[in-house]
């Protein structure tokens, strides 16, 4: 464990608490893409199945359980408890355009041709693009509640912090994971536009609004 990864994980944890806080305090999931949340639940379930047969550490175990449980809980909140506040007519990104290519990529790029390794690869590729329905929704509405932008910023910072972690591990542990690194770079790149508006507007105390 190094500080980059620790802060990355903490940022990921924070993003989920911010999202829960947004839903509970506004009693609404307006502005949140159900599709993106469903993709994250898929990502965590596909990747963390190793919970059942591989012990890494208490930290690792707790985080995995938390990410699976919280993502399913968020889906429940959106689908049942706050269902009327979710507007499917603006959450229109076609997820099959993400799922299909990720399956193909996992079949092409993996470390071993076994079910867990294919699922791991698939989850890495899917995670890198899972934010697209959310960004698409943001693009369509052109604005976002401030708390929603904090959620997105914390979520984007998580994978961005994994990049220095990989560089650090390359030098200290001689570890290279080309699949995770490539996907992580793509994932972070997708946030660049958002980060720009977040830093120049939200952090200056203005509302998050995209230029018309």
């Amino acid at each position: 464990m190094n500080l980059f990864r620790l802060f990355g994980d903490l940022s990921h944890l924070a993003s989920i608490f911010i999202l829960l806080q947004k839903i509970q305090s506004t009693r609404s999931c307006r502005g949140i893409s159900f599709k993106t949340q469903a993709l994250y639940a898929t990502v965590f379930i596909a990747r963390y199945l190793d919970l059942f047969y591989e012990w890494v550490s208490l930290y690792n175990f707790t985080m995995k359980v938390f990410f699976i449980a919280s993502s399913c809980y968020i889906l429940y909140l959106m689908k049942y408890k706050y269902r009327p506040t979710h507007d499917p007519s603006i959450d229109t990104f076609r997820v099959e355009y993400l799922l299909g290519p990720c399956v193909v990529l996992a079949l092409l790029f993996h470390y071993k041709f076994t079910v867990p390794e294919l699922l791991w690869s698939f989850s890495i590729f899917l995670e890198s693009v899972a934010i697209l329905p959310q960004l698409f929704l943001l693009q369509r509405t052109g604005e976002a509640e401030t708390i929603t932008t904090h959620y997105l910023a914390a979520l984007g910072a998580y994978r961005a912090l994994y990049i220095p972690n990989w560089i650090y591990r390359y030098f200290t542990e001689d570890m290279v994971d080309p699949i995770a690194v490539t996907a992580g770079l793509v994932q972070t790149a997708l946030y660049l536009d958002f980060f720009y508006v977040y830093v120049t507007k939200v952090l200056q105390g203005q509302k998050f609004e995209l230029p018309a």
Binding site: M1, R5, D9, H12, D50, E54, V56, S57, N60, M63, K64, F67, Y111, Y162, N165, R169, E173, M175, V176, D177, A180
Partner: peptide, 10 residues
């Protein structure tokens, strides 16, 4: 070993 290290990431 690389595989094991890979799985300690979240």
């Amino acid at each position: 070993p690389v595989e094991q290290k890979r799985h300690d990431e979240l």
